[in-house]
């Protein structure tokens, strides 16, 4: 999806551009490309600039009370030029009574004083996506880092270090046959450390240690609805090691993302009951 382009414009003779400048900056910070027209633009000039700059949206700001004349004039000129796919929104000192009129004239939304800029940015984004039939995914929501996996040759040997030297307590050990590993969970306070010991040469952890030696192996992210997460990640083009969830330690459902798709880190999605 290309960046959304917005023209922030001051129609009429009003010189108050604090709001326009703040909105322009806020939309930029949100990730949009923003062009500001400067003061005293006629509706014709605004429409010409919008077409030339190929924008998705025009944001009009007016504090002088001329909005009922000038905002609809911009929409009309857009129609004349066949450019009425450009979304028009507005803001300023605009009495509530005028808003239905302006909306009936094709202004998509009026933002009144006190509207958080983030709300404006999100509205524009949604309106542009809707217009383009683009269905954005919800951002990937992880609950927390559940544990950090550490590959060791022998749990028994390394536990001396973790328990005696670092003073961490052992919570649970388990053998996960399907993965060919034995695991031990240590209480790290805000998360667990998971020591992974290969059971045999078929184990992925064995290959890892052969290649790189002992050390950090993966980061597990706690999620809900793991199958939906996997589908969503695949839609976003993320390469999965596990195309669907499989049983992990402690009865969890787990799936790994390929480090190639995750900036070099092996991530595990991990969903636990309750």
């Amino acid at each position: 999806m290309k960046k959304i382009r917005v023209l922030v414009a001051k129609p009429g003779l009003d010189g108050h551009d604090r709001g326009a400048l703040v909105i322009a900056q806020a939309l930029r910070d949100y990730g949009m490309e923003v062009i500001y027209t400067g003061l005293r633009q006629t509706p014709e000039q605004i429409v010409a600039a919008a077409i030339q700059e190929d924008v998705d949206c025009i944001g009009l700001s007016c504090l002088s009370g001329a909005h009922n004349e000038l905002f609809p004039a911009v929409v009309e000129r857009l129609k004349e030029k066949g450019a009425d796919d450009i979304i028009v929104v507005g803001g300023g000192v605009i009495p509530a009574d005028d808003i239905p009129f302006l909306e009936s004239k094709g202004i998509k939304k009026i933002f009144t004083p006190g509207t958080p800029t983030l709300e404006t940015a999100k509205f524009i984004e949604r309106a542009v996506y809707e217009r383009d039939g683009y269905v954005p995914s919800e951002p990937f929501q992880m609950k927390q880092v559940a544990h950090i996996g550490i590959a060791v040759r022998s749990i028994e040997e390394s536990l001396t270090f973790y328990k005696k030297i670092l003073g961490l307590s052992l919570v649970h050990t388990e053998t996960v046959e399907s993965q060919n590993v034995k695991v031990a969970f240590l209480d790290g306070g805000n998360l667990y450390l998971e020591l992974l010991e290969p059971l045999n040469e078929k184990s992925a952890v064995f290959k890892f240690i052969e290649k790189r030696g002992e050390g950090l192996h993966h980061v597990a992210l706690g999620v809900t609805d793991i199958e939906a997460r996997i589908r969503r990640l695949k839609e976003e083009g993320i390469q999965m090691i596990d195309e669907s969830a499989r049983p992990g330690a402690e009865g969890a459902q787990v799936a790994f993302l390929h480090p190639k798709s995750a900036h070099g880190v092996l991530y595990e999605l991990c969903e636990k009951e309750g």
Binding site: G12, L13, G15, N68, E69, L70, A73
Partner: peptide, 17 residues
């Protein structure tokens, strides 16, 4: 604003103001 910017009320620039 038209007065402040030196436009007569019937100037096209004064539209709406």
């Amino acid at each position: 604003l038209p007065t402040q910017i030196g436009y007569d009320s019937d100037d096209p620039m004064a539209r709406g103001e």
